[in-house]
């Protein structure tokens, strides 16, 4: 990641994903709280949420933003714990792969649930 991008660009993405994700998380929590916490977790209620396209877009955006921010944060911590070319490349590409897998796995749920494939 950092061999193709300057570290300052990565950090700009890190800050930006955090700020935008905070906004979406607030929306996500407000939706749950305004519906009543227990009621909002009913199966039918959750499926109805997913079928609302704007809300599904919020969930997808949140998934991408938090994954990017979270795995970059993990990469930063792991790179400070140990150094060495092989280890650093393994951590960098490992985090990138984990991020892509998590986004793909979460997107599968969002897409299938919003399309009614449940």
């Amino acid at each position: 990641m950092s061999s193709i991008m300057r570290e300052s660009h990565i950090m700009k993405i890190h800050y930006l994903t955090a700020l935008v994700a905070v906004g979406f998380v607030i929306i996500h929590i407000m939706v749950r709280v305004t519906q009543g916490f227990s009621n909002s977790l009913e199966f039918e209620s959750v499926i109805a949420n997913y079928k609302s396209i704007p809300y599904a877009v919020v969930l997808e955006a949140m998934l991408i933003l938090i994954s990017v921010h979270g795995f970059n944060g993990l990469r930063i911590i792991l790179l400070e714990i140990k150094q060495g070319r092989v280890y650093e490349n393994a951590v960098t590409y490992g985090c990138l792969a984990a991020m892509i897998i998590l986004i793909a796995y979460g997107s599968r749920t969002i897409i299938m649930a919003s399309m009614g494939m449940v």
Binding site: R6, E7, M11, L79, E80, Q83, E88
Partner: peptide, 9 residues
Amino acid sequence: IDERHGIWG
């Protein structure tokens, strides 16, 4: 300083 073990550490 703008590298992996630079200022962002």
